[in-house]
Amino acid sequence: MSEHEHHSLWKPYGQVLVALLVLTVVTVVAANFHFGTPWSDLVALFIALSKAALVVAFFMHVKGSTRLIKFAVWTGVIGIAIFFALTLSDYATRVITYVDAPRM
């Protein structure tokens, strides 16, 4: 294999690393702005999801892998989504008995 071919194998990984570092800076900068509830969290979540997607697609080679592998990835993601959604279906609809305010 020639040096040029090695170079072309390296390059995409380097680009992904740079993108991840840039997004890390972006998330810190974004955290200093006050978007209000729940927007600040959604912005942070969106950036974190983007970073995770980059790692999964490129570092973990899911981009270009078989449908079965992609299916396995989504299984985990759907599992955690079910856990979040149905647990929150309780907490988001409870008659408010928890008070997060200064107590007497």
Binding site: L86, S89, Y91, A92, T93, R94
Partner: peptide
Amino acid sequence: SQSAYAALVF
């Protein structure tokens, strides 16, 4: 003491 709405869904 789960929320009544969640109980309905479940």
